[in-house]
Design a protein around this nucleic acid. Structure first.
Lengths: 342, 342
DNA sequence: TGAGACAACGTTAACGCAAACACTATCACC
DNA sequence: GGTGATAGTGTTTGCGTTAACGTTGTCTCA
């Protein structure tokens, strides 16, 4: 019923015991009589006492909060990743605080420091922010940190990542097996290592098949808007592709929209394959052939690693890698043979 | 270069000054000579000093972190809301920590308390978690809190919300004006007050037009999956609707997928209108007619209110309400007249 | 009956930081 | 040459919590 903050000493006074006794009862740690326990709980509840997290943390008590830094919230892939981590954390009795990457690396560094300086018990970092120096300083801090989808600078920090290469290879081979020869590709965002892997797989596969053509590759940024644009660009070629592999599902949907806007049918006139297996991919028409990561398992792995690190287990140089998997749905089919044009 | 945590006193020792001098230099507060400043900064950087947020917070220093509690990350609407809040917060020099709602109300209450007990300077709560009692206890705590899209129990806490009624009314009237008479509706999640408003507008409008038919209303949950199902349900009626208004864009896309799977064309055979104006709505084919909220402005309003409250300004009973707006795109058109069936 | 065991609770200190206050030079000025 | 202003710096204290240790009281058993 008080209006300002209630501390242990208020509860203690009301219950007629010492501060430390209240602390023990509320933390269920140490010895106390049943009668005391009842009185303390009654007093605490009457005053609406809530422990001050900052003080606890200062004293070395864990906050039960894990921090997660992701590039953005709006992208379905990152949203799913965050959800998976949140689920796993919740199951282990933690809360997950999600932050989006700051544009300013200096500020980013400060924030990571602040998080580890009492706010969070551990940190899940989804993109390699900043330099090798930054990673090195994280290492030195000995804080429980796990990097996700990190392919960059060498580090001893534990890493959870999903392969993009094999899945992309499977996607392109799937299109080749269907009989496609002109297969377009729309890349992901320039700085993304995952995007680089997807492009690498496409390039390698097309080169091996003797089908590489630079004009079939268009830059993208994982967005649907760019998918529409790049789709039109590819379909405007004098010798347009019969299939397009996009580095994200959103981009793939953009391609489908572009194709439909031009009066083309998917998959009859154009096969489209995405990447990410976002929820929408299964519930669109046509449903989307795509490559997926085991996101639930990745979330679990991140949280497990953090908790292990907190418990003092050795996690240096741990690398947990998950496979990507091709999921064939309706948006990919054999190309029309020359004879059966509309 | 140290491996354990570096405190002010370490920096002080290395710089050959007292703790408070280091504090002053790093916070750029109070007086100190240029020489001292340089030595302190050098020492701090050499040791990799980062201020301990918990200790600062305990001392009354703000953390520059705002907390936000949303029901889920994966829904595009909430993701956009979080993004808007994060942008606004960043602009004001704050970081935004996003939490998803816990299933357990007791745990939720604890967490909110913990956040306000030293972790965050303020809290943006997107759904009315729990009871009037919970809101009352939040009020008593005098912490900077703002409720978003709260339509429930009476409270003196500041509220930012967007209208859903007028926009929904406009959507249904738009379909009526196009000539539709059988207009289906797919609701949002059962517990959502926004969903209730959208249904209320639909119902009121259809009743007023003398077109109300209970069978045209199907329960939904804002998801695309459910949109596919409910779409098939509606289109399987003996007298199917010529237009469907869905309480979310994802659901609307589900309806479109269902229609297309049945060989129907949108909008020629079926008009579809969504709600939320998610980014995808503009870049799909057909692009989606929908109702939108001014999400950027809402995010700004949330953060402004929190900051005002922190500064001691009176925000009791403040209600900032934003209008919803119909955005007409390609997915809505006049119904086929009886004569022009396929 | 008194020594010892142990349960129940309290006192004190410390976590890292910054505000309040206190102190010492240095300098200007009458 | 003393007064006071001011710049630069240090000491102390307390934020709310919990760990370590200390104290008190009760009970058991030889």
């Amino acid at each position: 019923m008080s209006r300002e903050k209630v501390t242990l000493s208020h509860v203690a006074r009301l219950a007629g015991v010492s501060i430390i006794t209240v602390s023990r009862v509320l933390n269920n740690k140490g010895r106390f009589s049943e009668a005391t326990r009842a009185r303390v709980l009654q007093a605490a509840s009457q005053l609406g006492y809530v422990a001050n997290t900052a003080a606890r943390s200062l004293r070395g008590h864990p906050t039960q909060i894990l921090g997660m830094v992701i590039p953005e919230l709006v992208s379905p892939y990152f949203a799913e990743l965050a959800r998976a981590a949140a689920d796993a954390a919740s199951q282990m009795g933690y809360d997950l605080a999600v932050f989006t990457t700051s544009r300013d690396p200096e500020r980013e560094r400060e924030r990571v420091g602040a998080l580890l300086g009492g706010l969070a018990d551990g940190l899940i970092i989804v993109v390699p922010i900043g330099s090798a120096a930054f990673l090195a300083s994280l290492e030195r801090s000995r804080a429980p940190v796990v990097l996700v989808n990190h392919f960059g600078a060498a580090t001893h920090l534990p890493v959870v990542r999903a392969d993009s290469f094999e899945g992309s290879l499977a996607a392109v081979r799937h299109l080749l097996a269907l009989g496609h020869r002109r297969i377009g590709f729309i890349t992901g965002a320039a700085h993304s290592s995952q995007a680089a892997e997807r492009l690498r797989a496409y390039r390698e596969c097309m080169l091996a098949a003797g089908l590489w053509d630079e004009r079939l590759v268009r830059p993208g940024d994982f967005t649907q808007r760019r998918g529409v644009e790049a789709g039109h660009e590819l379909l405007s070629l004098e010798d347009p592709p019969t299939a397009i592999f996009a580095a994200s599902d959103l981009t793939a949907f953009g391609v489908i929209a572009a194709a439909q806007a031009r009066g083309l049918q998917v998959p009859q006139d154009l096969s489209v394959v995405g990447f990410d297996n976002i929820p929408t991919a299964a519930h669109s028409h046509p449903s989307l052939t795509t490559v997926g990561h085991p996101i639930q398992a990745m979330g679990q792995a991140m949280v497990d690693l953090i908790i292990k690190a907190k418990a003092g287990e050795q996690v240096r140089d741990t690398l947990v890698e998950f496979p990507s998997e091709l999921i064939v749905r309706e948006s990919s089919a054999p190309p029309r043979t020359p004879g059966e044009k509309i």
